[in-house]
């Protein structure tokens, strides 16, 4: 079941060759490793572009978003 969260999080990510790949994130006091980035897509919010990452820790599926304009990460939903 998908639970909508939209909570700010701290993320460890690798920026390389114009791409960004989340490796882990801190969520409610736990460090969650990203085992697989299953899909990425963008979302236009006015002039800002939000990058979405569907990531799996092997158990749950998370939708992480990154707003490059303000360098803000959120966990949008968990399944």
């Amino acid at each position: 079941m998908v639970v909508v969260l939209h909570e700010p999080i701290r993320v460890g990510a690798v920026f390389s060759h114009g791409t960004v790949v989340p490796r882990w994130f801190l969520y409610r006091g736990r460090k969650i490793p990203v085992k697989e980035v299953t899909y990425t897509w963008t979302e236009q919010q006015g002039r800002a572009v939000l990058l979405h990452f569907s990531v799996s820790d092997g158990v749950n599926l998370y939708d992480l978003s990154f707003l490059p304009e303000r360098l803000v990460w959120n966990v949008e939903a968990v399944d």
Binding site: E36, T38, Y39, S54, S56, L61, D79
Partner: peptide
């Protein structure tokens, strides 16, 4: 197919 890529359980 997009949803199956997104969610490995599918």
């Amino acid at each position: 197919s997009v949803e199956q890529r997104c969610n490995p359980k599918l």
